[in-house]
Amino acid sequence: MTFAEKRKKTLRLMKRNWLLYVFLLPAVLFIVLFKYGPMYGLQIAFQNYSITKGFSGSEWVGLKWFIKFFESPRFWVLLKNTLTLSLYSLVVGFPIPIILALVLNNVKGVKRKKFAQTITYMPHFISTVVLVGMISAFFSPSSGFVNTLLSYLGGSGDTYFMGDPSYFSHMYVWSGVWQEAGWGSIIYMAALAGVDPTLHEAAMIDGANKFKRIIHIDLPTIIPTIIIMLIMRCGSILGVGYEKVFLMQNDMNIAVSEVISTYVYKLGLINRQYSYSTAVGLFNNAINFTLLVIVNKAAKKISGSSLW
């Protein structure tokens, strides 16, 4: 087909399917306004932005805000807090759904399996506000049952788990595991459903016990899924969500609980330092995006599985 013919065909298709462009219009509008609009607004990270002057009237200041952020003592504290939470979440939160999926996959009896799935998926539907409310009720020093139980076991019984900085990361990570492990196992369950049963039969005849079969048959089948999930997790290594951290923060744990995203929120929307906080947010997003690209490339080379 020549170039002219191709163009003619394209035009014919566009004309015939014009209605489909209308179908796309609302979504495109949304993406342009609320996704690409803010990306255009990222320029204020390099400006001394004021609302009255707008994007075009504000003066350019180059990398001033970035330098200010890197030189401030806060930078290292924020980076350390963010990395602590995300790496701890990764190390604990990544393998547990896989183990859960392998366990669920070996449950005999449809009803029993369904019951276990229903229960373990359930916390996913609890809102962040309620989750944090539950934590603070259970772990309250004056009225929470955890402290009461600990005092029976010989503990002091008045530990302020939500206030003591040394407990913060544990509370954050393990409550996250509690909420999301079940839901996270679904994707591995789906992959496990694709395991060829004849492989298991053959291995059984060769004398492999169940544990060996899981290691040598089930696990290799879900490796591509594991890699994809791992890439996604690595891409958000600095992306500790503000929603839960923000709700768990208080004056006593703020030294360890302030992460980059909550700092951006306070700096920007409470203190109204628009340019500075946009610069901090942009630094965060740029690192995340770069990490994602690098990890994805590496995964593609090593294992052949990748996001794109």
Binding site: L24, I31, P38, G41, L42, G268, G281, N285, F289
Partner: peptide, 21 residues
């Protein structure tokens, strides 16, 4: 167009620019 959509899953303008928009 799909690629442009997917890009927004991995990179965003952030909280403050969204607020200003």
């Amino acid at each position: 167009l799909m690629k442009l959509f997917i890009f927004t899953m991995y990179f965003s303008g952030g909280m403050i620019p969204l607020f200003l928009v």
